[in-house]
């Protein structure tokens, strides 16, 4: 009998950058290429800078807006609208979802009407909310809340319902009562699903924020996008759009970070 060596030495291919650099490039390379193309196509005149200003002009407009305080007010009011709506949606959606997921009769009774509400576009209802609540802040916050509620609510219901029956039975076999089963099994098992809902809700909140501000506001980032376009301040318009994208990324990053802390057991 002979022994064969099956492990061949790993050869490093020459000319490739070190692993961390490579990892960074493979993840963000396309983003940088896209931004570079944007900048170059503007400065070299491939696309009219009046339609698509180069990045430095946009960043310049953004800086001026923030430094002068003009955009800061818009950011503040937008954050307030989206934050209030998101907070209310979470404060209602998670407890209601937990209840509906746990108690079949409650879900049975509430599901049809919720499906009806959910399938009705929030933007289609915006005029109704304006009629009911007036043109002020309330109707704006409410329309965002309305659309933001459903992702969290449905994800929470789904999360509770898909908890492994076998884990619940295990807890019961040790004598756990309903409340203990809920607190020690159902709730922690639902957290990952709830976070999926929260991230969807955050995206929806920002989406509806812009729509609501474009329709009936005189302040806010969404208003700035429309207003800058009317006044042909195209760099400012892009600056406001960029700001929105940044807010979306930041909201997502915060939620991902929170999820990592709360559900270390389910990741990597």
């Amino acid at each position: 009998m002979t022994l064969q060596h099956l492990d061949t030495p790993v050869r490093r291919i020459r000319g490739l950058p070190a692993p961390p650099v490579r990892a960074f490039l493979s993840r963000y390379g396309l983003v940088f290429a896209f931004l570079a193309l944007w900048q170059v196509s503007g400065t070299l005149g491939w696309i009219s800078p009046a339609v698509l200003p180069p990045l430095d002009a946009i960043l310049g407009a953004l800086w001026t807006g923030i430094a002068s305080g003009a955009l800061v007010d818009d950011i503040a009011i937008s954050l307030q609208r989206a934050g209030l709506a998101f907070g209310a949606a979470v404060a209602l959606g998670i407890p209601l979802g937990l209840l509906m997921g746990q108690l079949r009769p409650v879900e049975c009774a509430l599901d049809p009407i919720l499906q009806l509400f959910r399938q009705t576009s929030a933007l289609a209802l915006y005029p109704v909310f304006i009629l009911l609540l007036g043109l002020g802040e309330t109707s704006k916050v409410f329309v965002i809340f309305w659309a933001t509620l459903f992702p969290t609510l449905l994800a929470t219901i789904g999360g509770v319902k898909q908890v492994d029956r076998k884990l619940i039975e295990m807890a019961e076999s040790y004598g756990a009562g309903r409340l203990q089963v809920f607190r020690r099994v159902v709730l922690p098992a639902s957290v990952p699903a709830i976070f999926v809902g929260l991230r969807l809700s955050a995206t929806t909140a920002l989406l509806l924020l812009i729509a609501a501000e474009m329709i009936g506001a005189n302040k806010g980032i969404g208003f700035q996008v429309m207003n800058a376009q009317y006044n042909f301040q195209i760099p400012l318009m892009f600056a406001a759009i960029l700001l929105m994208a940044g807010l979306g990324l930041a909201a997502n990053a915060v939620l991902v970070l929170l999820q990592r802390r709360l559900c270390r057991w389910s990741l990597d």
Binding site: K166, L167, E169, M170, A171, S173, Y174, G175, A176, Q180, R184, V185, P188, A189, V191, C263, W265, S266
Partner: peptide, 27 residues
């Protein structure tokens, strides 16, 4: 009485120590 199942039925968000202590804590 205590039951041992075919699947270990551990709570994935608890460590080994916390899982083993689970039955007592519930009681």
């Amino acid at each position: 009485r205590a039951v041992i199942y075919q699947e270990p039925r551990l709570l994935p968000w608890l460590t080994v120590l916390e899982n083993v202590a689970f039955g007592l804590e519930v009681r």
